[in-house]
Design a protein around this nucleic acid. Structure first.
Lengths: 228, 228
DNA sequence: GGCAGGAGTAGACAATGTCAACATCCCGGA
DNA sequence: TCCGGGATGTTGACATTGTCTACTCCTGCC
């Protein structure tokens, strides 16, 4: 009786690629509402399936969020990689990466917050593997740019330079991360000056980084994510 | 019939200071669970009142969160202010403020995330006034330290220096903000080296800041929060 | 002394995350 | 060719949550 095909041929019983559909719905809702508080049921509705169908693809909401977050990291990595194309000066390339990073966060704050807002375990270790992997590949883009000579000298990505690279990454990343979030929160402004502002911070940081690079301490986690 | 005083004298019908009790309960839950997803009803339970009593003191959950966030800003301001006591060197005072800032965030990540996680309007303008006020008084501590000569020269807090001060604030704040969040997310580690790491970033930033200070662009919002 | 209104309570509602039981479809082995 | 099992979807249920409305209790003020 449930086989009552009312109008035209309704979608087949099986969706086909619900996993992807749900993640995309989440990205849409995230962009539109700019709120991280959407419901699984809403996504199911958008995908045209019952409220419980997503559970066949994600163990729980957290796992779905992690998948979305992972896409966010991939998008960011791609943005940054693309930004370095057709640029020769290593320093300019690192600067371009920084701009792409901040820009990506500012353009979709809700997604950026999802990636870094601690909706997962709080600890990186608590993040599902899929997300950690994506985050690491994003970081690799930065590592490469720094080793490339962006700070005034080429730094071979060898064990001997781990300390130097780790330190540079930490300074670079935390500065960009903080700037992005302050911009997103509108805690700095007026908004018309955002690019000029960011540019000043960026160039200042690169100068400072180039100077203090050799003395930077050790310990940042760089390289493949630690095994579980 | 509801007047059945069962055991000893039960608490009086009126709580006395429920507003404060609810905020404190929220701070407790936040510290304990390190999750920002607690329920209003849970707070009411802790305070020993009915699930609707909090609504006599807060219009909705968002307003309660804003109040908690405001307390967070006040605590942070106090921490930073205390950290500068008994320190003479302006630079050391600014460094102490930075350490206090990062430390405060790392010690209670959930609270820090509540303050900056965009659970409010996303935009600073969307934040309730009480919270903006608290955030501003926190920022004032930093402004004072910078003007004090922490960067190698005294910068009178006058209109003529707005650009310089604003720029310094932005660099300083975004670096500390980003560092705090990376530490909280355990995206850098190992944790044993956190202090050493932070110290490196901090000193590097102060050096860089002192150098590039004069050229920093304009536009950061500093001063009393803009009128609604 | 009484009354207005602030403070707290009880009950209801829709929405949500998640569980369990059932339905439908597709694919590989007999 | 048939069939049965597993993956995928559906329906229904449940506890929990934010919030609304109506009610009760108590306190301060005229």
């Amino acid at each position: 009786m449930t086989k009552d095909i009312s109008i035209t041929e309704q979608r087949p019983y099986h969706h086909g690629d619900l996993h992807r559909a749900i993640v995309e719905a989440a990205l849409s809702v995230l962009s539109e509402s700019q709120s991280t508080e959407f419901s699984l049921r809403e996504l199911a509705r958008r995908a045209g399936v019952s409220h419980n169908a997503p559970y066949k693809h994600f163990a729980d909401k957290r796992e779905l969020l992690a998948a979305v977050s992972a896409v966010g990291f991939e998008l960011l990595a791609k943005r940054m990689a693309d930004a370095t194309k057709e640029l020769d000066s290593p320093r300019e390339r690192l600067a371009a990466i920084a701009r792409a990073y901040v820009c990506g966060g500012v353009n979709n704050p809700a997604l950026y917050r999802l990636m870094f807002g601690g909706y997962l375990g709080g600890q990186d270790n608590g993040r599902p593997a899929i997300e950690r992997t994506a985050a690491h590949s994003m970081k690799a883009v930065v590592v490469e740019a720094i080793c490339d000579g962006a700070l005034g000298r080429v730094i071979p990505n060898s064990a001997a330079n781990t300390r130097t690279i780790d330190g540079a990454i930490l300074i670079f990343w935390s500065q960009m991360h903080g700037l992005t979030l302050l911009l997103v929160d509108s805690l700095v402004g007026p908004s018309g000056k955002i690019e000029e502002l960011s540019e000043g911070v960026l160039q200042g940081m690169l100068d400072g980084l180039a100077n203090c690079i050799p003395e930077v301490p050790v310990g940042v986690w760089v390289g493949p994510p630690p095994a579980e």
